[in-house]
Nucleic acid binder design. Structure first.
Lengths: 228, 228
DNA sequence: CTAACTATTTAGGCATACCTAATTAAGTCC
DNA sequence: GGACTTAATTAGGTATGCCTAAATAGTTAG
């Protein structure tokens, strides 16, 4: 009985690999099925199923031990970074070249990232002047797959008031993103941070912007680095 | 027994509608299952199956009588033109903005046309200055779905030698397209046409281009109009 | 140490969009 | 007008990627 050869160059497989990459964090820790199911909006059983395929393909995309979570193999990591590169180049392109509002780039890039060719990738990269960061401040993986380490930390970690520089902003919540943008909270902006309470922050991005009160959940979406 | 509600906003359905539109011609004649199967590269049985779905959906996309062929309904025509608009705007965009070689725009556009949003469509249209023609000389349908009639005729129809202007070139065969391009056979170019024989043509696009000998099949890909 | 809880996997289904093989309808040829 | 031929349809099957429900493993609590 030969195992049937399955095609894993699919949008769906891409999304699983992206999710494992995102949830594994910089340490590439093992990720649980439930966490993946949550993030992908599918049933846990569907996750198990896909992980088994990804793990047993001729070139495995994940290392997977039953009930012990998954992490990416070298091939899986390569693929995840390629898609991430597509995503971030597309976001930059939509923002810079097509004048998209910042809060709309994510969804469009999320769809298109699976379908653009290498030529398309190369052409927009060239057109944009080989950018290193997308409009949310996230680093764009190089073609080689190399990606620089993050030295920033989440705003939600800040205990003491102070001045910081906005490093990056999550693109997951477009409503929040729009609000942050309207208050001048954009990558590179200088930020006065007041920790009102355990649950509440106040941000000020300078004279021309109104201060913004932000709950802890929102503060998790903003990453900052020291002022100088 | 209620008929199951099926979702027909799929890439596959799009492709069937496009094919019916293309094969139906300007007169929107009925198209046979076999012709569709050929063009789409699927088995005739698959065509029958999809046509039945397209015909019986709450808003039908085709008029279909068993064994008598199909044509588009108003809704189907609208959809086909929308996709065609996407396709041709994308081709123009890839060519003008991203500097694609002419023979590569088709395949990329063919993939992306199904996934771009209305915003994307609007932004590239604006960026390009609301173009009326794509780089192959094909007219881009307006947002309203209106499309001007073709007054050109295929080069293969020409019996007598003469001077003509290139109207448009089919984007179906990229190898041919590249060759035509290399010999200066591009939309708007002035063309000396010699009919060597029933099967062979010779084209000359002016001093700086070498003459090109073309078989009847290749001549079918070029549409021309009178010189002045 | 066993009961209970929770995470995960297995088993069995469904929809989409294909396929092949078998059947039926329609058109043509004496 | 019956026999052929060809086009088109029906019937039944496959792979993908999802689902729910049931079973199982691992973990925690008394």
């Amino acid at each position: 009985m030969t195992t049937r050869r399955v095609n894993l160059n699919t949008e769906s497989a891409d999304n699983y690999l992206k999710a494992v990459f995102a949830l594994g964090g910089p340490e590439e820790e093992r990720v649980s099925s439930t966490a993946l199911a949550d993030r992908l909006g599918v049933a846990p059983a569907s996750v198990t199923n896909m992980l088994q395929k990804l793990a047993t393909s001729p070139v495995p995309f994940v290392e997977y031990e039953s009930r012990r979570g998954v992490r990416l193999s070298a091939a899986g990591r390569r693929r995840a970074l390629e898609i991430l590169r597509h995503h971030r180049l597309l976001e930059t392109f939509l923002y810079e070249v097509l004048g998209y509002p910042i809060e709309e780039v994510h969804d469009e890039a999320e769809r298109l990232e699976h379908f653009i060719s290498e030529r398309f990738e190369e052409r927009i990269d060239a057109k944009l002047g080989r950018p290193k960061f997308d409009p949310h401040g996230h680093c764009i993986p190089a073609l080689s797959g190399k990606m620089s380490k993050q030295t920033s930390r989440p705003l939600s970690d800040i205990e003491e008031d102070g001045e910081f520089v906005v490093d990056s902003i999550s693109d997951q919540d477009s409503v929040l993103l729009k609000r942050l943008n309207a208050h001048g909270v954009t990558p590179g902006a200088r930020l006065h941070v007041l920790r009102l309470s355990q649950e509440e922050f106040v941000l000020r991005a300078g004279g021309r912007f109104k201060p913004l009160q932000l709950p802890l959940s929102g503060a998790g979406a903003v990453r900052i680095r020291p002022n100088d």
